[in-house]
């Protein structure tokens, strides 16, 4: 785990099912995450992924890479281009800082229309836990 290390990218198919199921799994019943007509009335061309799902995917991306002993300390994300059905989200990460067993990883997620998410994750990886 060194500064500058790149995590292998993770591709997520943004299906309508993922958007709706993610909204429900996070108890987010805002209509823009499941009702296309309502989404259009609110200025969006279609339903789009909610922030909790994106947050969860970013967390998964980090723990998938660093393994089950990794502990997330902090996740900070900002959303940009929405994740609409049919798109593909590609998460990428790079270690930005390391302090002992704790690293700060800069994460970006791009989809077909631009940068969906950018943020940082602080993760502690006990010695021997990192791949």
């Amino acid at each position: 785990m060194n500064v500058g290390d790149a995590l292998p990218p993770l591709e997520i198919e943004v299906t309508r099912t993922l958007i709706v199921a993610g909204a429900l799994a996070s108890r987010d019943y805002q209509d823009v995450h499941h009702d296309p007509e309502a989404a259009r009335r609110k200025g969006s061309p279609d339903i789009f992924m909610n922030i909790l799902t994106t947050n969860g995917l970013v967390g998964r991306y980090l723990t998938d890479h660093f393994g089950p002993t990794a502990v997330l300390r902090k996740v900070a994300v900002r959303l940009g281009a929405p994740n609409y059905p049919g798109d593909t989200l590609v998460l990428r990460g790079r270690v930005e800082a390391v302090d002992g067993e704790t690293a700060v990883v800069r994460v970006t997620g791009d989809n077909g229309i631009g940068r969906h998410v950018s943020g940082t994750v602080t993760v502690t990886v006990p010695a021997g836990g990192a791949r």
């Binding site: 993610g22 429900l24 996070s26 909790l52 799902t53 969860g56 723990t63 998938d64 089950p68």
Partner: peptide
């Protein structure tokens, strides 16, 4: 839903995914 297979989230001693905080 998220395709998260982290074993830390299942079985005895399971923890919740931290990113579920808001959920």
């Amino acid at each position: 839903v998220l395709g998260d297979t982290n074993p830390a989230y299942t079985g005895p001693g399971a923890t919740a995914p931290p990113t579920m905080l808001q959920a």
